[in-house]
Simulated assay, not measured.
Amino acid sequence: MKTTASVVIRIIIWIILIFGGIALSLYLDLKYFKSLLFNPYFHFITLILGFFALKLAFHAAAVGGRELKRKGRDGDIPRLETNRLVTSGIYECTRHPMLFGLMLLPLGVALFLGLPSFIFFIAPLEAFFIFIMVITLEEKEAYIKFGDDYLKYKEKTPLFPKTKECFKKLFFD
């Protein structure tokens, strides 16, 4: 697969976040939350919640990804890259729909697996880390790539969706 180093590094970071979160949580849960870890009622509830959280996360990522694939690529460029600023569709509601959805991924995995430490401590920290990555790396890269056009887009489009219609478009359309 032809892609850039930046994309490869982000994929590696995602793998580390998910599998590192699972490993750390198993360690902490076996040490401190054994009764909750082995509680079938807890697992039943978290499994259902996790399924829905994962569905929302992947749907949001797919909505943003489809829009970028259709409108953000011109010519032969590396996979998962764009060379056109997309400001329509879901990108009218939020500048980073894919990453907003993927912020739910650690929580979805944590709930699906029923790992208390991951649910209550690690997943929120990972979501915060993802948010920081977005506002530092993604915003900077977008500005470098698209310049003043991105600044104009940034002025009128929020980082995350703010209206009911935008949330619906991101998670349910």
Rank of each mutant, 00 (worst) to 15 (best):
I48Y: 00
A23Y: 12
F131S: 07
S88A: 12
L105Q: 05
K169M: 09
A53S: 15
Y143H: 13
F44L: 14
L80Q: 08
E139F: 00
T157A: 01
E141F: 15
L24K: 01
K169A: 13
L24F: 04
F52K: 00
L107S: 08
A123I: 06
G89A: 01
I13N: 11
M133Y: 14
L54Q: 08
G65N: 08
A62R: 13
L102G: 05
M1Y: 09
R84I: 10
H96I: 01
E92V: 07
Y153C: 07
E67F: 01
D148W: 10
K140Q: 12
W14C: 09
G89E: 00
F100M: 10
E67M: 02
C93K: 14
N83G: 03
E155S: 12
I11R: 13
I48K: 04
M133T: 09
D74W: 07
I11G: 13
I132G: 06
F100T: 15
P158Y: 05
K156P: 05
I122E: 00
I90K: 00
C166H: 04
R79Q: 12
K169Q: 11
E126H: 08
Y153H: 04
E138Y: 07
A23Q: 10
D149H: 09
I144F: 11
D149M: 12
R79G: 04
I13E: 14
V134L: 01
R73K: 15
L115I: 00
L28K: 06
K140M: 09
H43G: 09
I135M: 03
S35P: 02
T163V: 01
K152D: 12
F58L: 15
G65C: 05
F51P: 09
R66E: 14
A142M: 15
K31V: 13
A123M: 01
F146W: 03
T4I: 11
A5Q: 11
M133A: 11
C166V: 07
Y91F: 13
L99Q: 15
D74K: 15
G20V: 06
K164Y: 10
L47N: 10
A61Y: 02
A127K: 04
L54K: 05
V8S: 11
L113S: 01
P124F: 03
T4M: 05
F38N: 14
G64K: 00
N39G: 08
T4F: 04
Y153T: 05
S35L: 10
K162P: 02
V109P: 07
N39A: 05
L137R: 11
K154I: 05
I12T: 12
L49P: 01
Y153V: 02
L36H: 07
T87I: 10
I9E: 11
F19L: 14
H43L: 13
G72C: 02
L36Y: 12
L137Y: 14
T3E: 00
A61C: 03
Y150I: 03
L137F: 12
F112Q: 07
T163D: 02
F33C: 06
I12V: 15
I119C: 00
G50F: 03
R10A: 09
K31H: 11
F52L: 05
I48P: 07
L170R: 02
C93G: 13
G65Y: 09
P40R: 06
Y150F: 12
T94D: 10
V86D: 05
L47I: 05
A110N: 02
M98L: 06
H59A: 10
T3M: 02
T82E: 05
M103P: 06
F58V: 09
N83T: 08
L47R: 11
F171W: 06
H96V: 03
G101D: 07
E155P: 03
